[in-house]
Design a protein around this nucleic acid. Sequence first.
DNA 1: CCGAAGTGGATATGACATATCCGCTTACGT
DNA 2: ACGTAAGCGGATATGTCATATCCACTTCGG
Lengths: 196, 196
Amino acid sequence: MSEETPALRRDAEHNRQRTLAAAREVFAARGLQATLNDVAHHAGLGVGTVYRRFPNKEALAEAVYAGKLDDIRAAAQAAQTAQDAYQALSAFIEHALEQAATDRGLRELMRRGAGESELIERAREGIAESCGRLIDRAKQQGTLRADITVGDIAPIVSMIDSVMDLPSSGAAQPWRRYLALILDGLKAGLRKPPQP
Amino acid sequence: MSEETPALRRDAEHNRQRTLAAAREVFAARGLQATLNDVAHHAGLGVGTVYRRFPNKEALAEAVYAGKLDDIRAAAQAAQTAQDAYQALSAFIEHALEQAATDRGLRELMRRGAGESELIERAREGIAESCGRLIDRAKQQGTLRADITVGDIAPIVSMIDSVMDLPSSGAAQPWRRYLALILDGLKAGLRKPPQP
DNA sequence: CCGAAGTGGATATGACATATCCGCTTACGT
DNA sequence: ACGTAAGCGGATATGTCATATCCACTTCGG
């Protein structure tokens, strides 16, 4: 409330946008370890210009990804309205992974541990809560294995993530195959009966 | 044939062994990015001593992991003798992942792409060949889904690997659960029929 | 007991990313 | 138009870190 932004000069604002756009592209293509020099050059600007608007890479990354993470969180919340919870959960996971598939920076951000980025932390909380609700509901509907918990979502996402980093030889989006395989394994009532 | 090793002095040979042992421990615990300084210190030796025996970290890592990789390759070959190919394949994958589970360095080595280490390259070839045979045989025996290929093994291993790197909260070896989930998904004839 | 082999660890070297600084340029209110 | 505050560029200072070397000293072993 007290943080009055003094309004940027028009060219400065323009360059700020160019910086954000460049950062989005560079982070997506080369990951967060890309240099602010890289970003600046890709935007056709000097490094100084970038540092004038963003104190450091962390801040720039937050500006770039805050929106995307909110979208994902919102999607998890929106999934609550569906009547088939298992269906909604699957669709949400696939949706989230689609974002990750085209953005290496987002993948690296998602891999960050607990205290490494409170931006992620907040997103994770919201998403976990929504997923938890979906999971409970899906179990009640008898469509999800009873032994699945919220804690399984992160590992599953991480597993598919790792496939995306592989030097994909062959099919265009191999991760979809593996995701389908796993999601299928989560379904209730598909097990072969112990012994006939 | 022409490479005559001039036989080390007794203390030197002893230190070489200490270096290898320390490297095994340090690489296993902290990964290949650990410094040769770390290794030397952990062995109670000076850096110079380590560099006298191993020209660089790469060479030390090869000395450390050549054996382990050969073992894995051998296990893949040995699996051929089993009569149930699907069973043998599952067991082999689990065996390989058990090695990876306790050795971060090995995990990092396995993640290396094609041209990054010809040590891995050779191991990969042998393993791929053995797995290929097992896969073919399992399909013939009707125990493996027909759409699975050798190319699926690496991604699957990579997926489980990624779970091992996660800040495991909860069960001791979460990866076994996920491996079981996936292996189960590879079985033939478990699909729910399209519609009753 | 002597010379060759081995040792330690301080340090040179080289990469590399972060962030700053300041002379010059540009926007824009008057 | 013009003055000035805002903005710009990018060379470079700074800091970090791993690799590898060097050489005075120690130890082995014939």
